[in-house]
Each structure stands twice: as C-alpha cells, then as structure tokens.
C-alpha cells in the first residue's frame, strides 16, 4: 500500500513538472526600449493579463512583455516626433485565442513627466510612483491600483473593477465606476470626485491642503475616517440609508438641502478648509474619527 502511494505521488510530481515546463515553454518574454520626448504620452491597450507601470529614468520607456501564446501579437511603436508611444496587444490574423491565451503581462518603466493612458478589459492595472501630468486608466473588471503619485490628474473609469488609491496628492482625482468598490487612503488634492452606482466607497485621510471632495454612490456604503484635527465643511445625505457622524459640527447657515436627523447632516469642523459632500441613495454613510 505504501509503495502504491509512493508511486502515485511520484507520478503526480512528474505530471505537474511536465505541465509546468510546457507552460513555461509557451511563455515569451520580450524587452523593448522606446524613445519618448519630455511631456509625451504612453498609450497601452491590453485586454487580459496585467499592466504594471512604475517610475523609470532617462528618456526611454522600458517595456517588458510576457505573452503566453503565439496567437497573440504585441505592437510597440513610437511616433516620429516621439511624443507618443503606443503599446497594444491583438490576436494574430485567423487566430482566436482563448481568454487564457490572450493574456499578456506588461512591466513598464515610465520616465518622469510622462503621461499614461491605459485601457484593459480583465487585466489589472497597477501604477506606482509616476509623475506625469495625466494618468488615465480604464478597465472593465481588472482591479485598478494607483500609489505614490503627486501633482498628476488621475482619471479612472471602470465597469465593475475595484479601485484602490493611496498616497495621491496635488492633482485632480476623478473616479467613475458602475459596480466597483473604491478605496482611497491618504488621497488629497484640489478636486477628488468619486461616483459609483453599486460600489462601496472608503476614504481614509487627513484632507490636507483644502480642496473639494465629492463621494457619491447609489446603493453602496460610504465610510470616511478622518483625524480629529481635520478641517472640513461637510454635508452628507442618504435617501433611505442611515447616516452616522462622530464629529462635533457647527451648523451651517445655508445648505443645499434640509437636513433630516438620521438620514442627513451638515456642518463645519474647525475652520472648514475642505468641502466634503457624501451622497448615497440606499447605502449608509458613516464619518468617524481615526
């Protein structure tokens, strides 16, 4: 019995090893350097797999691509004026790759000051440490994560992809998602605007530097966690959800709606240097102290 078990175990290991080798054999890794002019834009279009962008140096975009099938082709090109780099994946003619075969994983090093536009379907998008004027990300279902970005306009659109932002400052942040949850940690700027139909919104930060924050959801919940020292002018309303607030607020003289206990509140904390609007239809809203 013991011998039989041993043989079965060895057989499984051999089978797994063979399958792994075959999978690795199909993986194709390429490394490309593309010239880009200061202030230029990188445009990435990739359906499945992943797209990861991080800060690079010099005046070249370094693209490391890993594809998993010969049915997929990767086009990478620079315009003659070097203002724009195009990176896109597509099926080869007469080929119909499966979802798994269509996957391409990109690791892209982006020089300072370069804007990026990324569109994916299921591929998650990760952005870390970029400093271009604009970061525009769009995904159907692939998770979108942006970290350590300052003075860039961050525009995000998703169908159902969850969105996570952290350490973002100094630029406009606009997020529109139909079903994705949105999580913001230490996100500040002159304008932060989040709209979602069904997703929850979580905000944790200090609202430093003033600005206008608008978080709107239809059926999702809104959770806002702020330090006791945060200075803000707050209005919150949920049509049929509950609202909770831990901060002592000074009542405002004028409001855009009549506050009703339990479903809405308005008021000012400290000097009210930031404007915060929280709106939900059926989701609950909670503003709590850190």
């Amino acid at each position: 019995m013991q011998k039989l078990t041993l043989k079965a175990g060895i057989g499984m290991m051999v089978a797994l090893g063979t399958a792994g080798s075959l999978a690795l054999a199909n993986d194709m890794r390429s490394e490309t350097r593309l010239d880009i002019a200061p202030g230029g834009t990188i445009n990435v279009l990739n359906s499945a797999g992943s797209v990861s962008l991080h800060s690079g140096s010099g005046h070249q975009v370094l693209v490391v691509a890993t594809s998993h099938s010969i049915k997929i082709e990767i086009d990478q090109d620079t315009t003659p004026d070097k203002k724009r780099v195009e990176i896109l994946t597509h099926a080869k003619p007469e080929q119909k790759p499966t979802t798994e075969e269509a996957r391409v994983d990109f690791e892209i090093a982006v020089p300072a000051g370069i804007s990026v536009i990324v569109n994916t379907a299921t591929a998650p998008i990760t952005v870390d440490g970029l400093s271009g004027e604009m970061i525009s990300l769009s995904a159907d279902t692939g998770q979108i994560s942006v970290h350590n970005v300052s003075k860039a306009h961050v525009h995000i659109r998703s169908v159902a992809a969850p969105v996570t932002l952290s350490a973002i400052s100094g630029g406009h942040v606009e997020i529109t998602t139909a079903g994705g949850a949105v999580q913001l940690t230490n996100v500040s700027g002159p304008l932060v605007n989040v709209g979602t139909a069904g997703g929850n919104i979580t905000f944790q930060g200090d609202l430093s530097g003033g600005g206008a924050y608008t978080l709107t959801t239809h059926s999702g919940a809104i959770d806002v966690t702020l330090p006791e020292t945060a200075s803000f002018d707050l209005s919150a309303r949920s049509v049929s959800g509950a609202v909770q607030n831990d901060f002592p607020l000074q009542q405002k003289a004028h409001t855009s709606f009549v506050a009703k206990p339990g479903s809405s509140f308005t008021g000012t904390s400290l000097s009210g240097s930031c404007s915060v609007e929280l709106q939900s239809f059926s989701g609950r809203i909670r503003v709590k102290k850190q």
């Binding site: 169908v159 139909a178 079903g179 059926s219």
Partner: peptide, 15 residues
C-alpha cells in the same frame, strides 16, 4: 465581462 456590463447597466438604470 459581459456579466459585469449587464449587472452594471441594471444598477445604473435603477440609479
């Protein structure tokens, strides 16, 4: 993805 679009359309229509 198709399911995500359908669910999202329904959610947005309700909204």
């Amino acid at each position: 993805v198709r399911q995500a679009y359908e669910d999202s359309l329904r959610e947005v229509n309700t909204y």
